[in-house]
Design a protein around this nucleic acid. Structure first.
Lengths: 137, 137
DNA sequence: GTAGAAGTTAGAGTGCGCTCTAAGTCAAAC
DNA sequence: GTTTGACTTAGAGCGCACTCTAACTTCTAC
């Protein structure tokens, strides 16, 4: 008995998602991922549904959602379609936060662009001074 | 001797920037802020230049710059106008990263909006089923 | 001049999200 | 059948950015 109960190994999951084996197991302990199917040798075999779910989690993570809230969402999901509404509300709240975050970052980017512009002016001034000083070197 | 060497107290600095006294002292230890002027009783008095610098640091922080890199920038700044060029390069690199971050977040926001739309469809379907089931309650 | 708020220091503690260790089991190639 | 390497577990450790503690001093208001 060996390569039974088809599905992705931990290493294949890492290749597919960029998430390390350590972190995959951590997410399972943290209840972000339901207990994964095992082969006859007790090794994890991830389904394509597991891959999709993890990719969704990564989206939430990259947009700053804390583990605790991802777990909350995961637990609602486990309870099926009766929790559709609270899950929707959770996502809508997250979306609103995300939009605020994007707006803030855009404002910061604009301010940074302004600062960079004054630096470029400063540099131009410094360089024209240097040219004056070394006109006949 | 008391209210000499005018400037903002720690509490006033907190009011002006939202940064706690503990964190202000931490930033000084971390060399993000140069040793602040003291009054005759050894208490900190922040100048308006200190306020501006801190606000700039907060911008960098909010855009995800780590403390170590902020310190690097601060140390270049301490060395005066000879470091204008490296500081400019640092800011330009940060701006490029920030733009990538904004683009990523916008893509995530779009995907999230799609997910929310399918949830809304699911909910509408569930609700019309419920209506059917309870037509003559 | 005295109470209470606000400041000082060095250093310990916290929360988050991993990340690694140790000791062992299992699988595939030779 | 043995080596090599991926896998398993429970639990310890880490890096970051604070955040707080304890013991003490100073300032402000009365």
């Amino acid at each position: 008995m060996a390569e039974d109960e088809a599905g992705l190994t931990v290493a294949q999951m890492t290749a597919a998602t960029g998430v390390s084996g350590h972190t995959l197991r951590y997410y399972e302990r943290a209840e972000l991922i339901r207990p994964v199917a095992r082969n006859s040798g007790n090794q994890r075999r991830y389904s394509s549904a597991d891959v999709e779910w993890l990719k969704f989690l990564l989206r939430l993570r990259e947009t700053g959602m804390p583990i605790a809230q991802m777990r909350e969402y995961a637990q609602l999901r486990e309870r099926g379609s009766v929790t559709t509404e609270p899950r929707l509300r959770l996502l809508e709240a997250h979306q609103a936060g995300l939009r605020r975050q994007i707006a803030r970052l855009r404002a910061h980017e604009k301010a940074l662009a302004g600062k960079i512009a004054t630096y470029l002016d400063d540099l131009a001034a410094l360089q024209s001074q240097q040219e004056k000083g070394s006109e006949d070197d």
